[in-house]
């Protein structure tokens, strides 16, 4: 009973945006990892994972993101995460992911923050 996640890459204001539409579980690993590797090989420095507000993320999905954080640190990339529900923002803080990736409620706020930082 797997569910396909839709992962797309786009570019805006100097950032690489990886849009995730669907549940982030073990079934999403290949698609997310592939998108991240594609963005990295294209030289992305600022990468935004843009979640869809009502999608579900489980511990396997969080483990996938921990793997991405690990890679991003080696490559000196900045990771941002947007679109998370309040519940998953809380979970990400509890787990400690927010030490390695900046959370913003919306994509626009993340892009504004990147623009101000440059």
């Amino acid at each position: 009973m797997s569910e396909e996640i839709q992962v797309t890459i786009r570019f805006e204001k100097g950032a690489t945006i990886i849009d995730l539409a669907g549940d982030v579980t073990t079934f999403a690993e290949e698609a997310i990892d592939k998108a991240y590797q594609t963005a990295s090989s294209d030289g992305a420095h600022n990468i935004i994972f843009n979640f869809r507000q009502n999608d579900y993320i489980n511990s396997a999905g969080i483990a996938i993101l921990i793997g991405i954080v690990t890679e991003a640190r080696k490559r000196d990339q900045r990771l941002l995460m947007t679109g998370l529900s309040n519940h998953f923002q809380k979970i990400f803080r509890m787990v400690g992911l927010t030490q390695y990736a900046d959370l913003y409620p919306t994509l626009e706020e993340a892009l504004d923050a990147l623009e101000k930082a440059t």
């Binding site: 921990i66 954080v69 690990t70 640190r73 787990v95 400690g96 992911l97 030490q99 390695y100």
Partner: peptide
């Protein structure tokens, strides 16, 4: 979970 330890392998 020790996320820092996980990230550092």
């Amino acid at each position: 979970p020790d996320i820092q330890a996980q990230i550092e392998g």
